[in-house]
């Protein structure tokens, strides 16, 4: 029985200078081939200009049960969102 190719998580930066975004995963024997496979699988429609690949087992995820403590505090920091501030119309676009 042959061993399965490891699983990789694929992140792609699109055309418009945005951050890399997780697009999915695939199998490949090593990182170099994971990048090539990602190019063939996930950029069939010109989706990207840069590819990151990460072994799936190298990703440490936040624990789902900590969702509350991790994310809820930021809900309270409403001032982080631009709509928190009322800017007079006369000031113009900001």
């Amino acid at each position: 029985m042959s061993s399965q190719w490891p699983l990789w998580e694929i992140f792609i930066r699109g055309q418009h200078g945005l951050n890399h975004r997780h697009v999915g995963s695939l199998h490949a024997p090593d990182a170099e081939m994971a990048i090539r496979n990602a190019r063939d699988v996930y950029t069939r429609r010109n989706e990207g200009v840069s590819i990151w690949v990460v072994p799936s087992n190298a990703i440490t995820a936040s624990s789902p049960s900590e969702k509350g403590p991790l994310f809820e505090p930021s809900n309270a920091k409403v001032y982080r969102h631009p709509t928190f501030f009322d800017i007079p119309e006369e000031v113009g676009h900001m």
């Binding site: 042959s2 061993s3 190719w5 090593d30 081939m33």
Partner: peptide
């Protein structure tokens, strides 16, 4: 395709 998949895996392990 087994030999192909195994061959590539073996190479990746050797290279590492």
């Amino acid at each position: 395709g087994a030999w192909f998949r195994d061959g590539l895996m073996a190479h990746a392990e050797k290279a590492e």
